[in-house]
Design a protein around this nucleic acid. Structure first.
Length: 400
DNA sequence: TCTGGGGTCCTAGGACCC
DNA sequence: TCTGGGGTCCTAGGACCC
């Protein structure tokens, strides 16, 4: 989808159309740009740029808060359109998907024709523009759709992959970011075509497993972890996490603990929704100077309960926080999932079941009345009201 | 008054086991 | 005394993606 978040915002506020728009927060807030309109991009604004920097570069831009639920809803609408074109749809992210069009020719016609139909239907049914890349591999589809933006269609014929890719900047390869690009540039690799002229062994020595895949990518192949398997194969999440950056750094123990409790609850809730238990709980702690540590603990038996998550997180926090040092961000992550809640032993079983019932009841309350309806006493123990106030996403709720 | 939040994958070292 | 080789699990950090 083209400038997806911006385009969805425009659907609800047409006055934004054609203007420099930045989605992600207000101009004086801590945070980064989630999406920028093409007009704003002309001024050098791009996603991941700090909001305050964007405001300097493009003072006349309109800054709007993001609406994640809305984007999910429109992502879902887009997916429905895609499913009418192929049963093999792989949502690569909220605004990107791959379709395996093998065997759809009789129904939809040859590639370019079906792409035009898809493009048109997407606009009609979602009101949104998209761009479409057509190729023999996912890599080619992705790179050509990037080239087709905005609002275009590009078909790279079989056999033309190498010559299409050769002149492009090596950073266009998905997975080659700032660091890898700089290292590649250092050994004289500027364009994708340069990858084919350099000794395979040099690539492997310098970039490990990744290096091997790079030459294949220069030929347009789906090599390496990202593009493996059939399009549309089922996958399972491997971790669930929530984190929070404070509006202002803090060393207030009550505030820190109540935030950790709140994050633990959010993680626990999602584990229960997906019917997972997690064996490993991880704390993320970022100090004011941006130095960041992560500390993990693996439990004897996996859990999906807020209290157990919070207890593990609390120990990690107290064992690692340098007392008094101001904190910028806290995060809680769960991983190493097991599908079925494990067998409870007889002694603990009763207590655990009571907690489990309590949590499912609180989940239902939250569904009905919102996230701030109910929380562990610890969450309230700090300065919850202040915390709510500084985080506009959590609106204070009268029913509380 | 730079630097979000939710993810995946890779590397590397140490503990531990046979 | 000196110190293998293979494997797995755990933890920490970092690059990268949207």
């Amino acid at each position: 989808m083209d400038a997806f978040f911006v385009s969805v915002e425009e659907l609800f506020n047409p006055a934004l159309k054609g203007k420099a728009v930045v989605v992600g927060g207000q101009r004086d807030e801590r945070g980064v740009v989630s999406a920028a309109s093409y007009e704003a991009r002309k001024f050098g604004v791009h996603s991941a740029m700090p909001l305050r920097t964007a405001a300097k570069q493009c003072p006349h831009a309109i800054f709007v808060d993001g609406h994640p639920e809305l984007y999910s809803e429109y992502s879902q609408k887009a997916r429905e359109v895609l499913h009418d074109f192929s049963p093999a749809v792989e949502m690569a992210s909220i605004d990107e998907a791959y379709l395996d069009m093998t065997g759809t020719e009789r129904l939809h016609g040859p590639p370019l024709l079906s792409a035009h139909k898809l493009h048109q239907q997407m606009k009609e049914r979602t009101g949104l523009n998209c761009s479409i890349g057509i190729g023999a591999t996912r890599l080619m589809a992705k790179i050509s759709s990037d080239k087709a933006k905005p609002n275009g269609i590009l078909y790279v014929l079989r056999g033309q992959e190498e010559s299409f890719l050769a002149p492009l900047d090596v950073g266009k390869i998905p997975g080659v970011g700032k660091v890898t690009k700089a290292r590649l540039n250092q050994i004289g690799i500027i364009h994708i075509g340069d990858l084919l002229r350099v000794d395979q062994q040099v690539l492997e020595e310098n970039f490990g497993k990744w290096g091997q895949a790079l030459a294949g990518k220069a030929r347009g192949e789906d090599a390496g972890a990202w593009f493996e398997g059939e399009v549309g194969e089922e996958w399972q999440a491997k971790s669930i996490s929530h984190e929070h950056t404070f509006g202002h750094d803090t060393a207030d123990l009550g505030k820190l603990e109540s935030t950790l409790a709140h994050l633990s609850e959010k993680v626990g809730r999602r584990l229960r929704e997906q019917n997972f238990t997690a064996r490993t709980i991880q704390l993320k702690l970022r100090y004011s100077d941006f130095s960041t540590i992560t500390r993990a603990h693996s439990l004897a038996s996996p859990t999906q309960m807020d209290t157990e998550i919070f207890s593990a997180i609390g120990k990690l926090f107290h064992g690692n926080w340098e007392r008094g040092r101001t904190v910028r961000l806290l995060g809680v992550q769960a991983s190493h999932f097991e599908d079925m809640p494990e067998q409870m032993d007889l002694l603990e079983g009763d207590k655990k079941q009571k907690w489990a019932r309590a949590f499912s009841a609180s989940d239902r309350l939250r569904d009905k009345y919102g996230d701030s309806t109910i929380f562990l006493a610890k969450t309230m123990g700090g300065t919850f009201r202040e915390r709510v106030h500084e985080n506009p996403a959590e609106k204070p709720d009268k029913k509380r």
